[in-house]
Design a protein around this nucleic acid. Structure first.
Lengths: 349, 349
DNA sequence: ATGAAAGCGCTAACAC
DNA sequence: GTGTTAGCGCTTTCAT
């Protein structure tokens, strides 16, 4: 089994170069010899060494993916989308986990960037410091950022502020006034973060509706337990209990439902949940939710990235003009899906 | 920036060979010259090309991870554990997603195995056919299988049958008789699968308790919506409604809780949930659960794998004896955590 | 302790 | 169209 290309060449009675051309499809080979080479390769079960090819061509056919979470639905879905699209195009995916608060964050970051084993990068939900962004952009390889705060690279983002506003206004339209918002913790609320923008949308909508005094913001860890704890705190005191909640994350929203059940109280009349796929988890619980198809986002990121790589390659070619190194900024569509059971504040307990 | 090792060598006034020795730590270099080389490398910001190194040494310093799910808690946690451990040891992780029912399963499998870019493999929750297992084992690179049905390679498994029995017996001890089990779909219930073994444990316990006629098994997709749907079906008819449920997966159990709430009925007195970490999701909802620390499983798999690689390397060395190619089979401990709110069938509605 | 040289397996110019 | 040759950047005998 296996063997090197020289073996294939020998068996087919051609030179290494011809064998390579026949197998990779680059350069002229007569149909006849190609067939012979392919046969020879099949006979000895030849598979090219991507490493040797990489060393020779300078391209690795691998994409580095940097993600902030591995155990949350949204991120898993994006990752799944990207993985599938990459494999379909013949690329490997090397995974790097960069949690927001890691003490070794700097080391991870560095080992990631100096790793020369990928042609391009995709970042999922990475909220990076100015310094980190600068380092990312200094890297010659193209980057597509999904849902983080990175500017200057290709990006796919949803309009978090508009979304926060839309969710809140929806609740206001239904007649709610005591609308709470469960968000991220302090460090995640600087203006230029997902949760910060969603919060801003919430605040703006409340203010516009003259509900500034009813604003109720609660931090939470973005997990089921996090949502549970926040909700338990939020719902405990019946006098100040909100009639509606806008949660910044799926996991948190589910946690709220469970908390409400455990406390033996009726779930707040509305819950808005951000994220998740077409077969939304939240949707089925008859909540109001935003769909944004994370899987499709992952796929789309791959397309942008590979397109950029191809453009770059074409730009290298002797004929073509300038690299046209513009950066695409995709405003990803979201859709408010309304499936409430109880919608009016009166029906809340 | 960057540059090749020849640049470093030139700057330090030594040969490429010495520079290499100084930088990699293999072979003799005087402390003095080493220092000089390291300095030179630092000055020009040299980072070695792992690809060139791989071509030369034959080792890639990368591990391929094959996982059946990316959007489920257990798998995400295992992946996170493995990723961290690998990075700590200087290895890359290339991710491959192999869903159980994929039409292109064979192609994925093949592209994975013929990919020569990794030194070893970790499989997470892969239920493979005989043919697939054979192909996996035919691959010369070592494999550690976590929680699948692969035998003949290093493996980390929990005793699913014992666990199914233990969960069921726990419910029986509490006085329950109408105990339902939510499991996987048909294809997942052949004897040698996670869900099949858990089911077997459940059945055995029921039979031993003379409750064979009370056996109630319901298939479900292993997701929150899946658990929801199964539970909705299970709980709808009050006359045959079980007083306890043993669910085969976290997501399913959470789905059940939500279904119960939505249907406006009290949740079954007990729910046993399989999986999840120390900070168990299920745990906090006061359910009975099994802990098995998936993150630690991921880390442990990495340790076994890298140990094997090191052994192999040592075996290559001229001095040592035989490869000692035994395969480790780890029986991973699980712990039943009991945090029920309502425990007795009387208290069920 | 260090250097010279060969070679990992492939691709890409350049000749023929 | 096909073969020859020269690397890609590193590691590693083998001399010295």
């Amino acid at each position: 089994m296996s063997g090197a290309i020289s073996d294939v060449a020998a068996l087919a009675g051609v030179s290494k170069a011809t064998a390579s051309r026949a197998l990779t499809g680059r350069g002229y080979v007569s149909a006849e010899t190609r067939e012979r080479v392919v046969q020879a390769a099949a006979t000895i079960g030849y598979v090219a060494s991507p490493i040797a090819a990489s060393l020779s061509t300078g391209r690795t056919l691998a994409i580095g993916v940097l993600t902030s979470f591995l155990n949350r639905w949204y991120f898993g879905e994006v990752l799944e989308g990207a993985e599938g699209a990459l494999r379909a195009r013949g690329y490997d995916l090397t995974l790097h986990h960069l949690p927001p608060d890691s003490p070794e964050r700097d080391r991870i970051f560095d080992s990631y960037l100096t790793n020369k084993r990928f042609d391009g990068m995709i970042s999922i939900g990475i909220e990076a410091s100015q310094d980190e962004i600068a380092r990312l952009l200094a890297n010659p390889r193209p980057l597509v950022s999904i849902g983080g705060n990175i500017r200057g690279a290709h990006s796919i983002n949803i309009d978090d502020q508009a979304l926060g506003r839309e969710a809140t206004e929806h609740l206001i339209t239904l007649g709610h006034t005591r609308i709470a918002h469960i968000t991220g913790h302090d460090a995640e609320l600087q203006t230029d973060t997902v949760h910060g923008r969603r919060l801003a949308g919430y605040l703006a909508a409340m203010e516009d509706a003259g509900l500034t005094s009813a604003v109720h913001v609660l931090p939470a860890v973005h997990s089921l337990p996090g949502g549970y704890e926040a909700a338990a705190q939020l719902l405990r005191d019946a006098r100040i209990r909100p009639t509606a909640v806008f949660a910044s994350t799926d996991e948190v929203a589910i946690g709220i439902i469970i908390a409400a059940r455990r406390l033996g109280i009726t779930v707040p009349a509305e819950l808005s949940v951000i994220g998740i796929d077409g077969h939304s988890y939240a949707e089925m619980f008859a909540l109001t939710t935003f769909e944004q198809e994370p899987r499709a986002q992952g796929r789309h990121a791959v397309e942008i990235l590979l397109q950029d790589l191809e453009d770059e390659r074409r730009a290298q070619a002797p004929d073509s003009g300038e690299p046209g190194s513009t950066v695409s900024e995709v405003r990803w569509p979201t859709r408010l899906v309304i499936r409430q059971t109880t919608t009016r504040p009166e029906s809340a307990e």
